[in-house]
Design a protein around this nucleic acid. Structure first.
Length: 561
RNA sequence: AGCCUGGUGGUGUAAUGGUAGCACAGGAGUUUUUGGUACUCUCAGUCGGGGUUCGAAUCCCUGCCGGGCUGCCA
């Protein structure tokens, strides 16, 4: 029954692939690819596509290639290509020996273009950019044929070879497919398939002076790699007729292009162009800023690959436009971290707490549970003494109703340690509380007593002598509105940046066990949130923590009302 | 304006002619040595109008609304 339900709830792409496989299309073979252009860093939207393509291959007993779509040397860089490979790997996917580049196929692509010329289906056009634009027509009016459309095959072949040899300047000539200038689909109005670019290519050096356009490179690369299902986002829908036209007219293996809606997330922007602006204008500290939805940013923030997989599984797959609520991402993150992240103690805004009746100069080691969700994580020793720090917001001189924490005369449990009762507190000249004086109950070691008395409040603490001075970066949403694209007249998304998306706390204290924590491996500071060590800790020679995500806070929520 | 495409609770996604379900978010509660977690309950939906049918989210017609398309970007 349950497996039946599972089958029924396949997304539209998977059910289509399943049908194809059942019908024996491509001999039941399933082969996908993830084809990023190496002109920027991967983001969560790419992660969705990666999970889809590699996931489908995995589920249908097929393969997925990684292909760098490097057909335009003007924008592309090796640096990006390397980052892409690293990110895909980090996400946990394996392309084995199937790393390809569109540029691997430049010879074959040139030959395919020549074949098109020989069959009278492509021609060299001398029209300048503006003239070509003019003749293309508009959305509602048909275009006109290029005056160069009827050149002979021989002339076309010669000119194309001359283009290849670098005998013309950039933009002087193009190779165009000969399709239909009156097509309602602009992509079919004799699209350019090769353009002249005198620019060194990261992979092929100065061998080529002409480069294939997306439409001519992408589908043909799919075909060469014998891809069966070419999954892409909705904006390529109008290109599918062209994709199909090339395969048919070249008489080559014909993969099926299927389009799906791209991922959008609230409180961020997900386009390369907009993200570039954030970086260039200094609104964030680079592509790997933990506030960025890039794979590298998320990694630095403390996201696990598993949480991203889970998210990509849950966002679903369809053709309708969507904006996923950031809360879902946070949910996936917390769910993963909750069961795996070790617990530690720390205070963000330290307030001194002195235990008056604790024996002077006594020290102890308290046993603390590493993860209540995972018994195998065991316990650790945490130093304790009569001088500790608690978090400033865990003490109130005049507590509101239902405040379970420390206040004059009230008793709380120091997590894993003892019950303490507030006897007094000290203020400075500004009226700010600077120290809390307590007595502890020696019988309450471990956090409970034989008399079974109920102590509702439990707070975290750190030992004054051994605590590690720590800098903490509290990250919040990059934008202050769910959809940053929605702006007033004359303004743009930059206006919607959340001015408080990063707050740095310099005087935090964390338990001594944190000194040997690994970079980018998240842990939980109990009652606060999940954090991980930032790589800046090395250069600044101080423990620097990034807040991955806060714990859900029903007390804070209650107070907002 | 033309062409393509889509419209199911707040959000996302199922149900393909037969009881509109799931998740997140919201609300209420139980448990709790994290105001965390877990668990329970709950709020809330088929874009409108016609038609076909015993029966329509699903099929047909029509209207409305959203997205995309006039790069030698991908």
């Amino acid at each position: 029954m349950s497996s039946e339900n599972k089958e029924e709830s396949l997304d539209f792409i998977r059910s289509r692939i399943k049908d194809d496989q059942a019908k024996g299309k491509n001999n039941g073979r399933v082969h996908t690819r993830f084809p990023p252009e190496p002109n920027g860093y991967l983001h969560l939207g790419h992660a969705k596509s990666i999970c889809l393509n590699f996931g489908v291959a995995n589920e249908f007993n097929g393969l997925c290639n990684l292909r760098l779509d490097d057909t335009n040397p003007v924008a592309e860089r090796i640096e990006y290509a390397n980052a892409i490979k690293k990110d895909v790997k980090w996400l946990g996917f394996n392309w084995d020996n199937r790393l390809y580049h569109a540029s691997d196929y430049f010879d074959q692509l040139f030959e395919l273009a020549s074949q098109l010329i020989r069959s009278g289906k492509a021609f060299v056009c001398d029209l300048a950019f503006e003239e070509m634009k003019k003749l293309r027509g508009t959305l509602v009016t048909p275009g006109q044929n290029s005056p160069f459309r009827e050149r002979s095959v021989e002339e076309n072949l010669n000119l194309f070879t001359q283009m290849k040899n670098g005998e013309f300047l950039d933009g002087a000539k193009t190779l165009r497919a000969k399709i239909d200038m009156s097509s309602p689909n602009m992509n079919m109005r004799d699209p350019v398939i090769y353009r002249i670019i005198h620019k060194e290519h990261p992979k092929t050096g100065d061998k080529w002076k002409i480069y294939p356009s997306y439409d001519f490179a992408h589908g043909q690369s799919d075909s060469i790699e014998e891809i069966t299902h070419s999954l892409c986002t909705l904006e390529f829908e109008h290109h599918r007729p062209l994709y199909d036209w090339f395969c048919e007219n070249l008489n080559i293996h014909h993969p099926q292009q299927i389009e799906f809606a791209r991922l959008n997330l609230t409180y961020v922007v997900m386009s390369k162009r907009k993200m570039l602006r954030l970086v260039e204008e200094g609104h964030v500290n680079g592509w790997d800023d933990p506030r960025m939805p890039t794979v590298q940013g998320m990694r630095r923030r403390g996201f696990s690959p598993e949480s991203i997989h889970d998210f990509c599984d849950r966002v679903g797959l369809a053709k309708r436009e969507n904006i996923i609520e950031a809360e879902l991402l946070e949910h996936c993150l917390r769910q993963d971290l909750n069961k795996r992240a070790p617990r530690r103690l720390g205070v963000l805004n330290p307030l001194k707490l002195t235990i008056e009746n604790y024996p002077t100069n006594q020290n102890e080691e308290i046993d603390a549970v590493n993860n209540p969700e995972d018994e195998s994580a065991g316990t650790r020793k945490v130093p304790f003494s009569g001088e500790i720090y608690i978090d400033r917001n865990d003490f109130m001189e005049e507590p509101p109703k239902k405040y379970f924490r420390l206040a004059p005369g009230k008793e709380v449990r120091l997590k894993y340690a003892y019950y303490v009762t507030c006897k007094d507190f000290i203020k400075d000249d500004n009226g700010e509380v600077i120290e809390v004086i307590c007595n502890y109950d020696p019988e309450s070691k471990g956090g409970n007593t034989e008399d079974g008395r109920r102590v509702k409040g439990t707070i975290q603490w750190v030992d004054a002598k051994t605590a590690v001075p720590t800098k903490v970066r509290l990250y919040d949403r990059l934008f202050s509105v769910p959809n940053p694209e929605v702006t007033n007249e004359g303004e743009d998304f930059i206006k919607n940046i959340n001015p408080d998306s990063l707050k740095t706390l310099d005087t935090c204290l964390t338990e001594s066990n944190l000194s040997q924590i690994e970079t980018e491996v998240p842990f939980q500071l109990e009652r606060i949130g999940y954090f991980c060590k930032d790589r800046d800790s090395e250069t600044e020679e101080q423990l620097i923590l990034n807040r991955t995500v806060a714990l859900r806070d029903s007390w804070g929520k209650l107070n907002k009302k």
